[in-house]
Design a protein around this nucleic acid. Sequence first.
DNA 1: AGTGTGAACTAGAGCGCTTCAGAACGTCCA
DNA 2: TGGACGTTCTGAAGCGCTCTAGTTCACACT
Lengths: 351, 351
Amino acid sequence: MDRPRKPTLDTVAGVVGVSRATVSNAYNRPDQLSAALRERILETAASIGYAGPDPVARSLATRHSAAVGFMLGQGLSASFADAALSIVLDGLASTVDGHDHCLVLMPGRDKGGPRPETVTRAQADVVVAYSLPDDAPALAAVRARGLPLVVIDQPVLPDTARVEVDDFGGARLAASSLWEAGHRRFGVVTFALHPDGHSGPVTPARLASTSFRVTRDRLHGYLDVTGADTPVWECTRSNRELGRAGARALLSTSPRPTALLCASDELAFGALQAVRDLGLRVPADVSVVGFDDVPAAEHADPPLTTVRQPLADKGRHAGELALRLLDGGRPGEPTRLPVSLVPRDSTAPPK
Amino acid sequence: MDRPRKPTLDTVAGVVGVSRATVSNAYNRPDQLSAALRERILETAASIGYAGPDPVARSLATRHSAAVGFMLGQGLSASFADAALSIVLDGLASTVDGHDHCLVLMPGRDKGGPRPETVTRAQADVVVAYSLPDDAPALAAVRARGLPLVVIDQPVLPDTARVEVDDFGGARLAASSLWEAGHRRFGVVTFALHPDGHSGPVTPARLASTSFRVTRDRLHGYLDVTGADTPVWECTRSNRELGRAGARALLSTSPRPTALLCASDELAFGALQAVRDLGLRVPADVSVVGFDDVPAAEHADPPLTTVRQPLADKGRHAGELALRLLDGGRPGEPTRLPVSLVPRDSTAPPK
DNA sequence: AGTGTGAACTAGAGCGCTTCAGAACGTCCA
DNA sequence: TGGACGTTCTGAAGCGCTCTAGTTCACACT
């Protein structure tokens, strides 16, 4: 039972009666041979079931794999539950796919990003990192392999391209608007400060050592306006249910906060629900603000006041940066994308 | 300016003074050399900045790339907005990652799955397809390359592994429970029948030619109980907003349906909202059922009656099947996972 | 001393492709 | 008529690794 071996370039070359180089050219450099011959080659290839040059062999020969890796800080289902992340990823994917590159996903496993072995074995010639803790081992693995790296929303590492958003400024913007409206008692609901699965009230010590840059900046932006003694509730992840629980905890203290500042829209949706759970009204009794401006924010009940950041642009930009690095481009200065406050109906002056 | 070339196996071998094979063994077959030598090799490698065998070269030599491809029917952000898909994908990713395989994503571009070129160039040695139209070109591209294929919820193709769920039976189950409770006027909200972006009422002709197997089965399951003349509203995708709009349309007819059967939970969440929009109550005025039993179903307002399918299992199973095919295993019989009705508070007898 | 054995290591042939430096063959112009 | 060019195609050297079939060597046993 001898399996028919898969046809290779050589097989095709043999059948057509030309050299292997010519067949290769038929696929990669149509201008290097006559149209007629090319046509004949392609036809023969199809007829013997040759589907085109093997991607792996091609990668070895060309020394690039036409794939960009994407490192996630969490598992896939957790990641996908995050609309903001999804949009970024989609922006990235469309850029990258448009340039005939694939996307290799490296989901976070142990808390803190993908396993280093995953990174070491991944066939990608550039990787982009998103919402990893600043000291993730995966980051080190990328460097060890000498792969170009682009980070989104993370501290600059040497030789690394970066796209970022003014999280601190955005958060300040939101908090200030509430402060100016007259609010004085605030509560903050945030996602993880550390990849350790902890949730609950945040101590100053924990706050000081925050290992996610985004968390740190948004929190500091809020607290810069509301004061360092503002109660902060940490959720292990950014999702509706956890936000609901956190907000409920914050709202059960007395005096009750008149405004809830959330580190993400997803958390804010939960907060909206929590306010209702307690028989209170938004914004009459409690104002709620989010961060990100995901599409659902506009359709929330009530529509959510939030800080907009250009999510899809972030992904697209990261994709372009990655592609540029591949072309041998220098990382250059970090790109900073604008944020803005989008006032909607979830905020009002306190009673 | 001569760039220091990246070290290779040979470099390390040269420095240590052993053959290349031995260095290779140090990484891949520790039992083939003495512990001391292995130690020395690994140390030297680290000291000259060698991060381990190049994945691409290794793939070429071993003839497998340790990656599984995943073909999506839609863009990433649309896909991720779908909790059910996310869970499946996560199940798949954890299986696959546990076996040191990467996940290569091929997002749908043109309606109907990834571009065939994307498939042709992807470095994966098995691919799994999910919610593609039955005639997606990407499917053909996979076959052309001769890659093993596992499909989730799709018609069997020759030589293809498959995991599926009894969508027809599940839908029937849900519809029957409503029928038995006394409902006689139904409305059905479904996601796409064809990848053409159409939305609105579904004609019998369109229904008859449905190109997504899942859609077809769930719909037929519902209509099998409620009658072929039941109004069906098609949404281009499975998301809350579209479901809300569809349900609103269905509820605006008179006589108004007393029960809404949705093809997914996501759509059902929208339906819940639509009922509220019209000043009606669930389940007093309108019963709503979903399909999938995503985690949010339990926390919906009111908690959603739905058909449960083991989503994570589906992904894990697909992953195992993929891994087995890689090992040269035969596709075997399709695996059929169980479904069940989960009665919660969104359904009740009609008034 | 002769032989058998197992452990430790190596030589070298690929894996399937790209690519660069030509070769072969017109063609065109002086 | 000759040579300068262009076009079209080829030969062969890699790309960085794996893996089979050895070779070597130390040691134990007869």
